[in-house]
């Protein structure tokens, strides 16, 4: 297993919620019609005409304390290299305990019956490529890298910029960060 802690950093200032990331993921991972592993949350706060907006490209947070992995009775959900949370289809019974456990509703049951979710495109990352959503993003909103490497782009962004994570109170220590 390679060391490191993979993370994604999402620059909400740049994101235009075009959903290119969603479609690139679907194409790269050949997902069934009607399913997605990443998605856009568009939030608008305030009352006309005093409004402010935030767009977030969201996906599995690959939590450091992943409740889904804890909930899995068979070991199908597991922590793979770089802290990436994966599901091994051949071990999954489709019991959905992990889906109940996930604070982010990032998992779904495939038409074949096993649970699936974002893999951080680990198959690409292991070849030295970036995840499909990162490479397609026209606004360069998405950054991916190893947080354990202080010289990585993601590590530097988290030092230089203000950021937040979704629902830190979940206690799961999510690894998708949102620059604000």
């Amino acid at each position: 297993m390679s060391a490191g802690r993979y993370a994604m950093v999402v620059d909400t200032r740049l994101c235009v919620a075009c959903k290119a990331c969603v479609l690139a993921c679907k194409a790269e991972n050949n997902l069934a019609e009607g399913y997605c592993r990443d998605w856009l949350v568009e939030e608008v706060h305030g009352e006309f005409p005093k409004l402010r907006a935030e767009n977030r490209s969201e996906r599995c947070n690959h939590c450091s304390e992943a409740p889904c992995v804890d909930a899995c009775p068979t070991g199908a959900s597991h922590i793979a290299g770089g802290g990436v949370v994966l599901v091994t289809p051949d071990k999954c019974t489709g019991c959905k305990a992990c889906m109940a456990a996930c604070p982010y509703d990032a998992r779904y049951l495939t038409p074949e019956g096993f649970v699936d979710k974002c893999t951080f495109c680990l198959h690409r990352v292991q070849r030295g490529e970036q995840p499909a959503c990162v490479t397609v993003c026209p606004t360069r909103t998405l950054h991916f890298g190893d947080l354990d490497d202080p010289t990585s782009e993601v590590a530097r962004l988290l030092v230089d910029r203000k950021w937040k994570v979704n629902h830190p109170e979940s206690g799961a220590h999510p690894n998708v960060y949102f620059l604000v």
């Binding site: 075009c18 290119a20 479609l23 690139a24 194409a27 790269e28 490479t135 397609v136 993003c137 026209p138």
Partner: peptide
Amino acid sequence: VTKLVGNPDHPLAKGRLCPRGTG
């Protein structure tokens, strides 16, 4: 055709695509 991705050598795409391009 399994997928369409942006051509990094192309000055209009710079390796990236809008959603329709992928679609």
